[in-house]
Computed example of a mutant assay.
Amino acid sequence: MTQEDPEIQILLDQAEELYSSLLRGETTLADATCSEILIKLETAIEKKKHELKQTSKTSQLC
């Protein structure tokens, strides 16, 4: 999925950086859970799931 959607890969990379920051103690858990990166990642994943669902429905009709 990330090869097809570079935006998701970028967000995953940013989420990994956020996680590393959390492990190093540079970010609090409260800040990490409210992070804009995670919100954007969740939105992008939901959008991709919806697209895949629509594609699946279309291919079943053929």
Rank of each mutant, 00 (worst) to 15 (best):
I45Y: 03
Q9K: 13
E17D: 10
G25D: 08
A15V: 01
H50N: 09
E36G: 05
K49A: 11
C62A: 10
I39P: 00
T43F: 06
P6R: 01
D5N: 14
A44V: 04
E26F: 04
A32Y: 04
L29F: 09
L52Y: 07
E4I: 00
Q9V: 00
T28I: 04
P6K: 05
K57E: 13
A44Y: 03
I45S: 02
C34G: 07
T58S: 07
K47A: 15
L29G: 02
Y19E: 09
E36S: 13
I10V: 06
L22P: 03
S35Y: 02
A15H: 05
E46A: 12
E4L: 04
I39S: 14
D5G: 00
I45L: 15
L41K: 10
I45M: 10
P6C: 00
D31Y: 05
I37S: 02
I45V: 15
L23A: 06
E26P: 00
E46Y: 08
K48C: 02
D5I: 09
S56Q: 08
D13A: 10
A15M: 06
L38D: 03
E46K: 13
L29N: 01
E42P: 00
K48Q: 14
L12C: 10
T55A: 13
L41M: 09
E51K: 11
E51S: 12
L61S: 06
G25S: 08
E26H: 08
E42L: 13
M1V: 05
S35H: 13
T43W: 01
E7S: 11
L23T: 08
G25V: 07
T33N: 06
D5Y: 11
H50R: 10
K47E: 14
S20I: 13
E42A: 14
A44S: 14
K48L: 10
A44M: 05
L61T: 07
T2V: 07
L18V: 09
Q3V: 05
E4G: 01
L41V: 10
I10A: 03
K40T: 03
K48R: 15
Q54S: 08
L41D: 06
T33G: 00
L22A: 05
K49E: 13
E42V: 09
I39V: 15
K47C: 02
I8H: 00
A32H: 06
Q14R: 15
G25A: 07
A15S: 14
Q14F: 03
D31L: 07
L12Y: 01
T33V: 11
K53E: 15
K48P: 00
S35Q: 07
Q60Y: 06
S20Q: 15
K47D: 12
T27V: 15
L18G: 03
R24E: 15
L52S: 04
M1T: 03
K53A: 15
E51N: 13
L23D: 07
H50G: 02
K49Y: 08
H50T: 11
Q14E: 14
L18P: 06
